[in-house]
Write a protein that binds this DNA or RNA. Structure first.
Lengths: 137, 137
DNA sequence: AAAGTAAGTGCAATGGAAGTGCATTTGTTA
DNA sequence: TAACAAATGCACTTCCATTGCACTTACTTT
């Protein structure tokens, strides 16, 4: 089990207090978060810093961006060993129409999608909307 | 073959010159359009009108909204007989990373997606990104 | 056909999220 | 410790989505 510090270093990300805090915040969330969520959790920090921290995490492949159809960009930590640019590793996301939360269904890989001749598939975004397990109880 | 007027009436949409024009504009596009696209096509009309027309079409289920991951909301006419809230009728969209256009692949239905116990799937959004047939030639 | 009502349209303004420039602070390295 | 690079904070900008209000157009009822 590697520490967060080791993880960041292995990804060529400088360690700062801010980054450790943001990483921990993301790690303890099972749901996907918006920039505003992070902003609310760290009221002392500036939005720009949070924004750029997330962008850095994204570039270094420890966070991936989720587009769940709400129009607001959301983020989540990648899984261990996830390389977000490899399409076979993509999982799907579930957006609850009731509680409005989005979760990564990391165990549910996206099936192979056939596209017409001439089209080249590079990437797939799949969001299932409905009622999540908490809300359907 | 019903006229546009008949179609709008059957959907409980009042007929106006503007609405007919916008409908025709959408009908002749194979690609999905943004509000700005419509705006550029109708420079005399106000953005708000276009915006609300599209919203009306959406509510009355003759237009569906597409979220192709560009962050900008796009729209397309529903297919004949499409009732956008019925999940089996959903088709997928293809976004070209080269020309930046998004196309409805109406013939390509979305496969049945399994979700974990407790989750209820109501809707699926599937966007494939890559290179379209025009750009890959 | 005229009056009255409901819906559609245009203008102006607002709000929210994403993104940028620059000065300041913090951290790393020689 | 000096010098440099990266990170942070503040202010500002941009872009799209959305709303309020006044005005016009289309439908309904008599």
């Amino acid at each position: 089990m590697q520490t967060i510090e080791q993880l960041l270093e292995s990804k060529d990300i400088r360690i700062t207090a801010m980054r450790l805090l943001i990483y921990k915040f993301l790690a303890e969330k099972e749901i996907v978060v918006t920039l505003s969520d992070i902003e609310n959790a760290f009221e002392k920090a500036d939005r720009t810093t949070l924004y750029r921290t997330i962008k850095t995490f994204e570039e270094k492949d420890i966070v991936h961006q989720i587009d769940d159809g709400t129009g607001i960009t959301k983020y989540a930590l990648c899984e261990q060993g996830c390389s977000c640019d490899i399409k076979t590793d993509l999982h799907l996301h579930f957006h609850c129409n009731n509680c409005n939360e989005t979760i990564c269904l990391t165990d549910h890989k996206i099936p192979q999608i056939k596209v017409p001749d001439g089209f080249v598939s590079e990437n797939v975004n799949l969001v299932v909307k409905g009622i999540c397990d908490k809300c359907s109880r």
